[in-house]
Computed example of a mutant assay.
Amino acid sequence: MTLPSILFYILIGVVSIQVAYYLSFLFSFAIKRAETRLKKNIPISIIICAKNEAENLKNNLPLILNQEYSNFEIVLVNDSSSDNTLKIMKEFEAKHNNITVVDVKTNETFWGNKKYALTLGIKASKYDFLVFTDADCIPNSNKWLAHISGNFSNQKSIVLGYGAYSKKRFSFLNKLIRFETVLTALQYFSYSNLGMPYMGVGRNMAYRKELFFNNSGFNNHMSIKSGDDDLFINEVANKTNTSICFTSDSFTVSEPKASFKAWILQKRRHISTAKYYKLKHKFFLGLFYTSQLLFWILGIVLILLGYNWQWVLAVILLRFFVQLLCFGFTSKKLGEVDLIILSPILELFLITTQLSIFIANLISKPKHWK
């Protein structure tokens, strides 16, 4: 058997894994309808941890305050900012009796660790139901809080939401960031939908304070600078206590990074936490990424070699059809339809970028959250 024929059979195996993954893991969410559950009577504490976010707070806090919800407070956590963040927070606190400011001073033990600041914010909150977002995020509607809180119940103590990024015309980086965001959401929503929740995003998620303290908060991974959202959820979420919320009114929207360098640094922090996930999650996520990488390598090599190009092309097109079907349904659901036609190109760029980030993280580790 020749080397090209061996590579072709490996390609068939890789595509089989990809197709099985998309149809079994991801398609269940892609075709799932969003359910609207509104509650306005559960007291909610919104936690916003900010570091050097004066302008974002000034612009975005009014939209949080404008939520159509009967009983909520906002806990603003100033994480040792060097700009006017604390001043802006104090100004809002003076005007609104449902705002509490927590000023976190520099701590050598927990320097650069958002988890420490968040823990102090959670301790300062009055209510048991906590909703988390970031200072650079705005709610997609004035019913954001009602949609998120509506997914809490006696059994559900975690709610995973979608944190979108705003669209920028004529920007390939913007499309790449949004593509990665949709693909990540497709995975964590799908896993949760199948009873295997493994992460959430701090831009839009919620859980009960009781759950936080009963599981010792961030203590088990406090030494890891990132992971206040995904590592905590990976540790405590299960098939019975986790709900997903993806109605368009429940989204938050934030400004994406404006340069490749800034985005790469952000992704380095995020990817560095994946090795601390539970073994089953690492296996399935690793298998998906490895099969993606091998699909592109083997497909390109076999096309260049001209080996049975009709069959190679047929296998490649089958995989793209299944991928586009699944990603297309999800993109429409999450309001990212413009990404569908570019998804193969964006996927190739994302895979190569993730590979370079993985190699960079082996050499050095990100030091702090901001």
Rank of each mutant, 00 (worst) to 15 (best):
L279K: 12
L279H: 14
L279S: 12
K280A: 12
H281L: 03
F284C: 08
F284W: 15
F284H: 13
G286Q: 02
L287Q: 07
F288G: 04
F288R: 13
Y289I: 05
Y289L: 09
Y289W: 09
T290V: 07
T290A: 11
Q292V: 04
Q292P: 00
L293F: 14
L293M: 08
L294D: 04
L294E: 04
W296H: 12
G299V: 03
G299S: 15
I300L: 15
I300W: 13
V301N: 00
L302R: 10
I303E: 13
I303G: 06
I303S: 14
I303N: 09
L304R: 10
L305V: 04
Y307V: 02
Y307Q: 00
Y307S: 02
N308R: 12
N308P: 00
W309Y: 09
W309P: 07
Q310Y: 13
Q310N: 14
W311F: 14
W311G: 03
W311K: 06
L313Y: 03
A314M: 10
V315Y: 04
I316N: 02
I316L: 13
I316Q: 02
L317E: 13
R319G: 08
R319H: 14
V322G: 03
V322K: 01
Q323R: 03
Q323W: 03
Q323H: 11
L324D: 08
L325A: 03
C326P: 06
C326V: 15
G328F: 00
